[in-house]
């Protein structure tokens, strides 16, 4: 018979201490990489679940120029879908996909705005020591780049607004569906909107090459 003396307390304390130390390290690393405070807090308590995030960057801070309109339009759409007349409509997967796509597109606009602002600041405080000729060549290239980015941004913004207009039409179609029945293709319309959002890259590229 094997004697198993109960001497696990030091081991238990050591393991709990190590767990907390590793949790603090993981939480600190995640916070430094731009993850939300809730993620860092969760990682402190349950770091084994959050270890995969160490290789990922957190979300960029700030929201884009159409964030408020997106939130309003989607809230109105959800209200419409929650109406008793629309209860047979089952679109959670498609709707959540549209929400994600819209916010991602908005975040990309936000990133472009930050870039443009940052380049503008750099140009304003450009080093005066550089030669005039070189400065002129660089300036033309930068101006052209800013112009291209601005056009692509405008095309993307217009496309997002068009999709948000489509969301308004979708609400009207939900109303129509409650009267006319299942012949109104609400789900197809929602998928069309997602397809239009997915085509933003192509539209921006066409704008650049126009």
């Amino acid at each position: 018979m094997i004697t198993a003396v109960v001497t696990f307390e030091p081991l238990g304390y050591a393991l709990v201490g190590s767990y907390l130390v590793v949790g603090a390290v993981v939480a600190t690393l995640l916070a430094r990489r731009g993850h939300a405070p809730a993620v860092a807090l969760g990682a402190f308590a349950c770091w084994p679940l959050f270890v995969p995030l160490l290789g990922q960057r957190g979300r960029a801070p700030g929201v884009g120029p159409v964030h408020d309109r997106i939130v309003e339009a989607l809230a109105a759409l959800r209200d419409a879908m929650a109406e008793p007349g629309a209860e047979a409509l089952d679109l959670p997967g498609d709707l959540e996909g549209l929400v994600g796509d819209l916010h991602r597109a908005d975040e990309r606009l936000a990133m472009v705005d930050r870039l443009l602002a940052s380049v503008g600041r750099e140009r304003a405080t450009a080093a005066p020591g550089s030669s005039a000729e070189a400065a002129g060549g660089h300036a033309n290239g930068v101006l052209q780049g800013i112009d291209e980015l601005g056009r692509a941004r405008a095309a993307t913004l217009a496309q997002i607004h068009a999709v948000l207009d489509g969301v308004v039409q979708l609400r009207l179609q939900i109303g129509l569906r409650s009267l006319a029945g299942n012949s109104v293709p609400v789900q197809e319309r929602l998928r069309d909107l997602r397809s239009r959002l997915a085509a933003i890259d192509e539209i921006a590229a066409m704008e650049l090459h126009a």
Binding site: A36, V39, L41, L49, F50, L53, Q56
Partner: peptide
């Protein structure tokens, strides 16, 4: 995998 978004 939206782990960062959903886990908290």
């Amino acid at each position: 995998v939206p782990l960062a978004k959903l886990a908290p």
